[in-house]
């Protein structure tokens, strides 16, 4: 049982949520009182809020909007800023957070992505980055061609952790070099036009640690490496690896403990060699 500051058993605690009704409205804080139970996580707190639909003042309010999926920390959906630090809300245990922070729970949306509503943000840029760096193995097709090339156990052991990236966006939220990109829709635009403009805007800005890591993952795959040059071109394009400032927050906040900074440094090395080779060997202008 958790005790409050007066040493009494905690019967309830306060949750403050930074809410925002829509992308272009102002954000505000709303407080909720949640009865304390052991073994709560932030998701169950949000579920409770939805069920109560009353804030701390007793006024009725709308349920908080938030994203979640597997609740086991493998899908990457429920990322948010909890007491100032980005993390998955499913694995954020209320007991631990209350221990750290004087009995208050503060929930905020990620700040590097446009807010859609409350704690829901638009992370399409994360997936766009994967397109940009061609995070796939360029197989010929899906007919049966027998097994893939034999692979070193060591290579698998290095690749597996990189492959655990669930595109949750923690590394991007904590990165001081990764800034929010918000594209406003223009009234005369079609869906496709807006999408294209948004993607073009994303492509100009930093791809982020997760994408660099994926590029290194596929560049180490026996078939994937056949287009490693294309990936390095993408990584050294505008918004590429050069934006990294080596603050190394990415690796510190990664919920999957992926060696992101190692991938970044390896990408840096590959980019150096790639560019020098290209300068001296290539016929391109």
């Amino acid at each position: 049982m958790i005790k409050n500051v007066y040493g009494e058993n905690l019967t309830s605690f306060t949750v403050k949520v930074r809410r925002q009704a829509s992308p272009d409205s102002q954000s505000y804080w709303e407080a909720f009182n949640i009865p304390y139970q052991a073994d709560l996580n932030v998701i169950s707190v949000l579920q409770q809020i939805a069920k109560m639909s009353k804030n701390a003042k007793g006024e009725s309010t709308t349920p908080v909007a938030w994203d979640c999926g597997c609740l086991e920390e493998v899908c990457g959906a429920c990322t948010m800023v909890i007491n100032g630090r980005v993390r998955q809300s499913c694995s954020a245990l209320v007991d631990n957070i209350l221990d750290e922070n004087n009995d208050v729970l503060r929930l905020e949306p990620m700040s590097k992505f446009p807010v859609i509503r409350d704690l829901v943000v638009d992370r399409s840029r994360v997936f766009r980055a994967l397109q940009k760096i061609k995070a796939w193995v360029p197989v010929d097709g899906y007919y049966d061609m027998g097994a893939g090339p034999k692979q070193d156990r060591k290579r698998q052991e290095q690749a597996y952790p990189l492959s655990e990236c669930m595109s949750c966006g923690c590394c991007l939220e904590a990165c001081p070099q990764y800034l929010k990109v918000e594209t406003q829709r223009e009234s005369d635009e079609t869906d496709e036009q807006f999408e294209d403009r948004k993607n073009a805007e994303y492509d100009k800005n930093f791809v982020g640690a997760h994408a660099i890591n994926q590029a290194m993952l596929f560049n180490s795959n026996p078939t994937g490496k056949m287009i490693s040059g294309e990936r390095l071109d993408a990584l050294t394009d505008e918004g590429g690896i050069q934006i990294c400032g080596n603050a190394q927050n990415c690796v510190a906040v990664c919920p999957k403990e992926i060696p992101l900074t190692t991938s970044i440094a390896k990408a840096g090395r590959a980019a150096t060699i790639h560019k020098i080779k290209k300068f001296f060997d290539s016929n391109e202008k």
Partner: peptide, 23 residues
């Protein structure tokens, strides 16, 4: 470069992040 970044050592006070900010 500095203009294109946003330090966050108050939220993430890791050593490497402080080194980044100090830089």
């Amino acid at each position: 470069i500095i203009m294109g970044s946003k330090s966050n050592t108050s939220q993430y006070s890791y050593v490497a992040n402080w080194r980044y900010r100090m830089q």
